[in-house]
Computed example of a mutant assay.
Amino acid sequence: MFDTLRACLRTLALLCVTGLSVPGLHAETGVSDTRIVIGQSAVFSGPARDFGVDYRAGIQLYLQRTNKQGGVFGRRIELVSHDDAYEPKRTADNTVTLIEQDRVFALIGYVATGNLIASLPIAEKAGVPMFAPMVGTTSFRTTHNRYLFHVRASYESELRKIIGHLATLGIHRIAAVYQDSAFGKSNLDTALKIAAGLNVQVVESVPLAIAATDAQPQVAALNKARPGAVLMIMAGRMVEVFIRDYRATGAAAPLYTISVGITDAPGSASRLQGGLQGVVTASIVPPPTLTRYAIVAEYQRDRAEFGEKIDSYNALEGYIVARVFVEGLRRAGRDLTRQGFIQAMERIGTFNIGDFPVTYGPGNHNGSHYVDLEMYLADGRLVR
């Protein structure tokens, strides 16, 4: 009898050390008495690296603030990040590693539509929450997934804001250049539907490769169609390539981009030598220097305190994302489980992060609806 009891106790101790679940005991993967481990796969190398680097910096910034204040119920939050170089296959592999080897509690801060397509089924099968991917693609919003939570507004909201603005100005003939990827094609379809509903004609649409260094054929095709405005449904350095070649032709139609178009505005402005002037962008967070917004003032306060040099829209978005995530952890209570976290998020209703509202419920994991339009100056600053 005593041998059996000793064996049971040894087995119980082993399970607790390795973090495996034991019926009747609280032992969630990625959660201990002192820490919560979360995981991220994002682009940290290559031409689109600014997305992942800045997004992670913002997330880490608020985690530093949280940990300095004692964490959540005494647990520090640790972020494990892996580079996927913007490649969906690597994102899928990283997701398996994060779940099976790093044994994270939740996934956070993924980047790009194709990468989310590749990784979400893996997370869902494992029952791991996936929080705030930098993705606004419509299909992820219209099909409810219990494990997926958004914070940023959808690309549909951004495109509706842009195309509605053009219609109000009386511009009813537009053209589009889109990223030759799942992200670009899906959001072109969304733009076409929105345009049709607003009596706006898309007179030409052309794809551009992610790694393109020359956009002259695309520019020629769009100029031939003589649109009243050009909508860029792209992300990262390829936007610079298109703007450079478009401006070189002397074309006068105004350029519009969604929020992920320009990630390094000062760098883009310098490389384009004034060519960024007048480009209009959708923004899904307030300007990161406009401290009359409480959320921005708090973000800048924490940047100063923790010495964070990165300062961008994507970094501010990451900071907001981490604040919403930590709020969900707090509401889930001391006995933290994945299912408890999901339920806590669904009970939030409408909640203000500073003065930035987000809304969640059992059938609504979409978060924010904030979208505004801003215009770039030649030096990369934005004005309204």
Rank of each mutant, 00 (worst) to 15 (best):
T138R: 15
D3Y: 15
L329K: 00
A118F: 00
C16W: 10
M232Q: 06
R141C: 07
E124N: 09
G267H: 06
V280Q: 11
R334L: 12
A282P: 00
L222G: 00
G236N: 03
F242D: 01
G318K: 05
Q273L: 11
V96L: 08
Y110Q: 13
V296F: 06
Q179P: 07
T66F: 06
V37S: 01
Y360G: 01
A85E: 13
F140D: 04
H82V: 03
E298N: 14
A332F: 00
Q64I: 10
V206E: 00
T337S: 02
V260W: 12
V371N: 02
I284A: 09
A332M: 01
D311M: 11
A297D: 11
Y147F: 14
Y293W: 14
V43G: 13
V371G: 02
T281E: 13
L382H: 13
I320H: 02
G109K: 10
T289N: 14
L329Y: 02
Y178F: 15
G318V: 00
M234I: 03
N314H: 09
A304G: 11
V37T: 09
G164V: 03
H144D: 13
F105R: 01
K125E: 04
L14F: 14
A221W: 00
R292T: 15
L276N: 02
G363Y: 10
M130W: 08
R330A: 06
A182T: 13
T91Q: 12
D180S: 12
V80S: 00
A344H: 01
V326N: 02
A132E: 12
T97S: 09
A229P: 02
A221R: 02
D302G: 07
V202I: 11
T95P: 02
N67I: 00
G274L: 05
S154R: 01
D189I: 06
E240W: 09
R65V: 13
E124K: 08
S119E: 11
L290E: 14
A112S: 15
G261H: 02
L148P: 11
A126L: 01
D54H: 14
R301V: 05
T213M: 10
E374I: 09
G58V: 07
L290Y: 11
R247V: 02
G71C: 01
I210K: 06
A235L: 11
H150R: 07
L15E: 12
N223G: 09
K224P: 00
L61D: 05
T263G: 15
R90G: 11
R303E: 09
D84G: 04
T66D: 08
R160V: 06
N366I: 12
Q60T: 08
T291K: 07
